[in-house]
Design a protein around this nucleic acid. Structure first.
Lengths: 148, 148
DNA sequence: TTCCTTGCAAACGATTTGCATTGGA
DNA sequence: TCCAATGCAAATCGTTTGCAAGGAA
């Protein structure tokens, strides 16, 4: 864990306190691991990163607490398996690109101008449907460098 | 089923033939039902629409065949449950907007200009990451008219 | 000390599969 | 006719939960 990761850990732990849950060994370990990976991970993958230091059932509970405290975000990949990553307020807003052949997913960033274009499109379209838009996800799919 | 739905059924069945699979009662029933619903449905919901005329295990097989033939598209909702809808080449390209409170999802369309803007953004970003972009999904989230 | 959190094992729910039977082309 | 498709029941797999023991504040 490098110096720049320290603040992220601190921010996350402060969030846990604010949410009224304790900062435990398992929660700290998961946060520290997720800081170091690029792209969302499954419980199984995190378990491997942790070398099974946290039993799967406890890991799921940990991921659930971290998600509902707003430290992590969860979504489901193409196979329907849950994937977790640090919430955007910790890492910055970003999107995903997934390889349709090998299934790997990585984070991608847009510059501010592009991002605001997307946000405007989302807001307008949502309003037309009577929705109050609070967020968007733009997932790209294609063939990754290794697969084409 | 109204007149305009006929061609969709025909196109879908032709696709099945092309894919080398048979057009069976269950497959036809599923296609006909999905033409009439707005937004992607779960196997459970489709089963209800079909009044259990197709046993769940067969329904899952049907949905799997229709998906790999390209007649349906599958994705997973916030709860991780698979949802199916007619493929875009049958219905036209569209996006989804989901209510963060009640979980309902509906289809939304963008006009051609907006859509081409999105496509350009997706292509550029993908290329920068070394990907050959083949598609994109822009999912909006917010509060639906009934929930706010 | 006081609850929250953990670990284990058992339960769950969505989805898949083996196998004998049925039914499209 | 012939092989794909079906129905049923049993199996899988990711995920959740009850409960007694352990640990953070």
């Amino acid at each position: 864990m490098t110096a720049q990761h320290r603040p992220t850990v601190d921010l996350a732990e402060e969030r846990l306190r604010t949410s009224g849950v304790r900062t435990t060994r398992a929660r700290r370990l998961v946060i520290e691991k997720l800081i170091r990976v690029d792209g969302p991970s499954t419980a199984e993958e995190i378990n491997k990163l942790l070398k099974s230091a946290v039993p799967l059932s406890s890991l799921y509970r940990t991921l659930s607490v971290l998600s509902s405290s707003g430290v992590l975000e969860r979504f489901h990949d193409g196979a329907g398996v849950a994937r977790y990553e640090l919430a955007e307020w910790l890492t910055g807003h970003h999107h995903h690109i997934t390889c349709t052949r090998c299934g790997s997913t990585q984070d991608i960033d847009f510059d501010a101008q592009i991002e605001s274009t997307i946000r405007r499109i989302a807001d307008d379209a949502g309003r037309a449907a009577g929705f109050d838009v609070t967020g968007h996800r733009l997932d790209l799919e294609g063939l990754c460098p290794r697969c084409h």
